[in-house]
């Protein structure tokens, strides 16, 4: 009886495990099936490098270059803002802060992760937008920068918690060895602890980027969604995620527009897949 129970439980776990993999494969399969249908009528070149996104035109113009660059500029902006901040925060929590501040900050960072993205979008729209608009004397506060700032807030918890893990798991003996040689605390941090934690730090950055590039709601609310080729970070941009979210509801099933959105989803899937792969590789990288 006990044997049978054990057997049953094992099989259920096995089934669940395979179900996860199966779902991923199915999702990819459906995405690819509809996404690739687009290329019967539109050449991949025009899709990837076309500069006009006008899916409601006759015939539809489905060049995703402005959307890709939109995602890129927002993501880069968010990375540039969140990585130094997140890294400083992680170092402070992991190395410098006294115990009670450390616990307080950790709780704070976790709380930040719990804020739904729509709330960040909402705060961004009412507070951040006007600040950006007035600071740079822009006609509108709905710009790539506004989106980047909001996304940076969303990426920081991911970056901080993974980096902090990486920093705390640096063996204590490295720190002692460095201090015993007469290095100061700061020298120890930047010459020994950060290099020793580097793979975790890179992984944290990659996962932060992954979080940012896939985010939809807040960017849709904050970036203005104009499908222009962005020249500066102070202009409205349209990201790939916002495009899919904004257009899926009204599109005619089976139209070129519909397939173009799936193809866009496929592009996004491939990008995030490679980012996660890079993060994974960094995390498991062995020292030479």
């Amino acid at each position: 009886m006990r044997r049978f129970k054990e057997f049953l439980i094992e099989k259920i776990i096995l089934l669940n495990g395979f179900a996860c993999i199966l779902f991923v494969i199915l999702i990819f399969f459906f995405l690819a099936k509809d996404g690739l249908t687009l290329f019967k009528t539109v050449s991949p070149w025009h899709f990837l490098f076309g500069t006009l996104w006008n899916p409601l035109a006759e015939p539809p113009q489905v060049g995703i270059l402005p959307l890709f660059l939109g995602s890129l500029i927002v993501t880069l902006g968010a990375t540039v803002i969140s990585v130094p901040l997140g890294m400083a925060c992680a170092i402070f929590i992991g190395e410098i802060a006294p115990r009670w501040i450390r616990e307080l900050l950790k709780a704070g960072v976790e709380l930040l992760a719990a804020i739904p993205s729509i709330v960040i979008g909402f705060i961004g729209m009412t507070m951040l937008g006007p600040i950006v608009k007035n600071l740079f004397h822009l006609p509108t506060g709905l710009t790539a920068l506004t989106g980047s700032l909001a996304l940076a807030f969303m990426a920081i918890p991911t970056i901080v918690s993974i980096m902090e893990d990486a920093i705390s798991s640096v063996p204590r003996s490295y720190k002692e060895g460095s201090l015993a040689l007469g290095a100061t605390h700061w020298q120890t941090i930047h010459r020994v602890i950060i290099p020793a934690a580097s793979s975790g730090i890179v992984a944290a950055v990659m996962l932060g980027i992954g979080r940012v590039i896939g985010e939809t709601m807040a960017v849709m609310m904050l970036t203005g969604n104009a499908s222009v080729l962005p020249k500066t970070i102070l202009e409205p941009v349209r990201t790939m995620t916002a495009t899919i979210a904004a257009e899926m509801g009204e599109t005619v099933r089976g139209s070129e527009h519909y397939f173009a959105l799936f193809a866009l989803g496929l592009v996004l899937f491939v990008i995030t897949f490679f980012i996660n792969l890079a993060a994974d590789a960094a995390l498991h990288q062995k020292q030479k």
Partner: peptide
């Protein structure tokens, strides 16, 4: 600490 150096129980070379 420059003057009084220390060698530890487990060798602890830096990952450099």
């Amino acid at each position: 600490r420059k003057k009084v150096g220390m060698v530890f129980q487990r060798p602890n070379p830096f990952p450099l």
